[in-house]
C-alpha cells in the first residue's frame, strides 16, 4: 500500500535539493542569505503549490464523482480572481488578509456554482462535466478580463489568471501558501469521508455520513487551496488533473493511502517544471505554469482519449 510513497518521497527530496542550487545567481559569497531569502522560499512555495493543487484536484474528483475535473478547469481560479478584482476596486487599501478572505469566499461561490450546474447533467455523460467546467471558467475569465480592462487593472488580473510562476517568490511573499498546506492536512484528515462520498450520496448516508456536509467540506478545501495559490503565485493548470489520475490508477480511490502520494507527486511535478523553467534558457526563466500548460494539455488529451476505461 505504501510502496509508491517511498520513491515519490525520494524523487521529491532530490528535486528539492536541486532546486536549492539552481538559479541565475551562484551560491558563493552570500550563499546563506540567498538560500534563506530566495531559494528555500521558492522551493517551499513550489512544493506547497503542487501538493495543494493535486490534493484539491483529487478531492474535487471524489466529491463530484468525475475523474476529469479539477479546480483550474472548472472556474475556481477565475472566481477567486473575480473576488480579488472586486475587493481591489471597492477597497484598494484593504489589508491582505481581507483580500485573501474575499478571494477564498469568491472561489467557494464559483465552485458551488459549478457543483450546482453539473447536478443537472446526466451522470453517465462523464465528458459533459469537464466541458461545462471549461465553459464556466471561460465565461468567468472573460468577465474578469473585461472588468480588468475597463478599470485598468489588467496587469493584476493577468498575474492571477495567466500561468503561475515562482520567480517573484522571496521570504515574506509566499507564506499564505501554508494556509493551502493546512487545507491539505484537513483533506487528509477527512480522506475516508471523501472516499465514501465517492461511492455516492446514498452509500454515504447509509454509512451514517451527511453527504452534504462532506461535500461542503470538500468544496471549502478546493476553494481555500485555489484562492491561496492564485493570490500568491498565480494559477497552475492540470496539476490537479494529471497527478490524481495517474496515482489513483495505481493505488485506487482509497484516499487515506493515496492522498500522501498525490500530494508528494503534485509537489514533485510543479517543482520539476519550475526547475526546468530555470534551466532551459538559463539565466532567464520560463514560468513553471507555461511548462505545465504544455505538458498538461497533452496529458489531458491523453486522459480523455483513453476514456472511461476505469469505469467512471
Amino acid at each position: 500500500m505504501t510502496r509508491p510513497l517511498v520513491p515519490t518521497l525520494a524523487a521529491l527530496t532530490a528535486l528539492a535539493l536541486a532546486s536549492l542550487f539552481v538559479g541565475a545567481a551562484s551560491l558563493d559569497g552570500q550563499a546563506g542569505l540567498l538560500l534563506w531569502v530566495s531559494r528555500i522560499p521558492r522551493t517551499a512555495a513550489a512544493i506547497l503549490t503542487g501538493a495543494a493543487l493535486a490534493v484539491a484536484g483529487v478531492v474535487m474528483q471524489q466529491i463530484l464523482r468525475n475523474r476529469f475535473v479539477e479546480p483550474a478547469t472548472t472556474g475556481t481560479p477565475e472566481a477567486a480572481a473575480a473576488g480579488l478584482l472586486a475587493i481591489t476596486l471597492v477597497a484598494p487599501a484593504a489589508p491582505i488578509w481581507l483580500k485573501m478572505i474575499v478571494a477564498a469566499v469568491s472561489a467557494l461561490l464559483g465552485t458551488v456554482l459549478f457543483a450546482a450546474l453539473i447536478r443537472r447533467l446526466p451522470p453517465r455523460e462523464i465528458y459533459l462535466v469537464p466541458l461545462s467546467g471549461l465553459i464556466l471558467s471561460g465565461v468567468l475569465g472573460a468577465g474578469v478580463t473585461f472588468v480588468g480592462w475597463e478599470t485598468d487593472l489588467l496587469p493584476y488580473v493577468s498575474v492571477w489568471l495567466m500561468s503561475g510562476e515562482f520567480s517573484g517568490v522571496i521570504a515574506g511573499r509566499y507564506e499564505l501558501l501554508w494556509i493551502a498546506g493546512a487545507a491539505v492536512a484537513l483533506a487528509w484528515a477527512a480522506a475516508d469521508r471523501f472516499a465514501i462520498l465517492g461511492l455516492g450520496p446514498e452509500a454515504a448516508t447509509a454509512l451514517g455520513l451527511n453527504p452534504r456536509a462532506v461535500l461542503r467540506l470538500g468544496l471549502a478545501v478546493v476553494a481555500i487551496v485555489t484562492a491561496m495559490v492564485v493570490v500568491t503565485v498565480g494559477m497552475f493548470p492540470f496539476v490537479g488533473l494529471i497527478v490524481p489520475n495517474l496515482v489513483t490508477r495505481v493505488m485506487g480511490d482509497n484516499l487515506r493511502a493515496a492522498l500522501p502520494v498525490v500530494a508528494l507527486a503534485g509537489a514533485g511535478l510543479v517543482l520539476a517544471c519550475d526547475l526546468a523553467g530555470r534551466i532551459v534558457i538559463h539565466p532567464y526563466e520560463i514560468p513553471a505554469g507555461t511548462i505545465l500548460g504544455v505538458i498538461g494539455a497533452l496529458a489531458f488529451l491523453w486522459l480523455l482519449w483513453r476514456g472511461d476505461r476505469d469505469g467512471r
Binding site: R124, A195, G200, T205, A206, G208, G252, N254, R312
Partner: peptide, 28 residues
C-alpha cells in the same frame, strides 16, 4: 448507521476501490 444497513440499486458509477477497502467502509 449502527441500527440499519442499506444497499440500493447501482447507478453504474464505480469507484476504483479495492474490494477489501470497500468492505472495510462498512465498518465506518
Amino acid at each position: 448507521a449502527r441500527e440499519l444497513a442499506f444497499l440500493g440499486q447501482h447507478t453504474g458509477l464505480a469507484s476504483r476501490l479495492r474490494v477489501r477497502d470497500l468492505v472495510a467502509f462498512g465498518r465506518w
